[in-house]
């Protein structure tokens, strides 16, 4: 039996200069986060427990945590909808992106780079514009509705725009690249020889996919679903452009509270609640997925 001996020789380095260097590299990023993330979060937190003064313009800090309960009770429907739509969009995006990423990683050959550029290409036009374009695509004159009606999937009077269907479709479309790219990255990293080894060890194509490809692509699945679900659940543009009053998501409520009703405390409380809910869900999800050692 071979015994491995490692000779660990430790070199003492000049402590001061070397140990400061990593912090110097981190400094710009940390500064940016402090100014544009931590400070606003703190302000938001303060605002969430204030009440409006009788003048209707200023606010005073009274630590009114009831704000949270009021806000939640007023908009629990939109809350549920945000998570439902986010979840649906994530599942749909995963269903579309996995075969796509798999194809690019394993079957595309020399077209690999072209296809990757095509995936990122939509980012060259505005998010808003692309979402408005879906109004046309799903609209009365668009191709989708004609096909759906011809196939009797929907009746002749039902329309696709201003519906939950349109909102989820828009969300799926807009966040598809965020699902595809991490999936592609993790699939591409799989050593093709492990797939050959699986075939060699009596697993057919489907079993190899189930037992080797999928587990090895889990880091990509986790990253992709997070990058899709988090922004999709907090989105309001898709619901605003493609939805109707009954498809409002929490983002729309927050938008309205901040900019139309000008009720800052409720808007801040809702923002915090959404943030906390997503954070909890994500933590549970990562724990359950158990991919720490693969990443």
């Amino acid at each position: 039996m071979a015994i491995f001996r490692t000779t660990a020789t430790k070199f003492k380095s000049p402590v001061n200069r070397k140990s400061l260097f990593p912090y110097l590299l981190l400094a710009p990023g940390l500064l940016y986060l402090a100014i544009f993330f931590l400070a606003p979060i703190a302000t938001l937190g303060q605002m969430s427990t204030k009440t409006k003064n009788s003048d209707g313009v200023t606010y005073s800090q009274v630590f009114r945590f009831q704000n949270y309960i009021d806000a939640f009770l007023q908009s629990k429907e939109q809350f549920a909808r945000s998570f439902l739509y986010g979840l649906l969009a994530t599942i749909l995006a995963l269903a579309i992106a996995y075969p796509l990423a798999y194809g690019i990683a394993f079957k595309a050959g020399r077209f690999k780079n072209v296809l990757l550029v095509l995936i990122v290409a939509p980012f060259f036009t505005s998010f808003l514009l692309r979402t408005i374009a879906w109004k046309q695509i799903l609209g009365e004159e668009g191709p989708v509705i004609k096909v759906f009606r011809a196939l009797h999937i929907i009746g002749p009077t039902t329309s696709l725009t201003a519906s939950a269907f349109a909102v989820v479709t828009g969300l799926t479309y807009n966040f598809l690249p965020f699902m595809t790219l991490p999936l592609y990255a993790s699939l591409e990293r799989i050593d093709p020889r492990t797939l050959e080894a699986s075939g060699d060890l009596y697993a057919n194509g489907f079993t190899t996919f189930r037992k080797v490809t999928v587990p090895l692509s889990m880091p990509g699945v986790v990253a992709g679903t997070l990058l899709t679900f988090i922004p999709a659940a907090g989105d309001y543009i898709n619901a605003a452009i493609l939805g109707n009053p009954d498809t409002k998501m929490l983002g729309n409520v927050i938008d309205a509270r901040f900019f139309r009703i000008v009720d800052y405390p409720t808007a801040a409380a809702l923002s915090f609640t959404l943030m906390a809910a997503i954070l909890i869900l994500v933590t549970i999800y990562i724990r359950r997925a158990g991919t720490e050692e693969l990443v």
Partner: peptide
Amino acid sequence: AKPYNRPVNTVFQNYALFPHL
């Protein structure tokens, strides 16, 4: 015959062990 239908097993050059198992 497909690889999974042969009474043949391979020791691969870089072992190709399954990293997730």
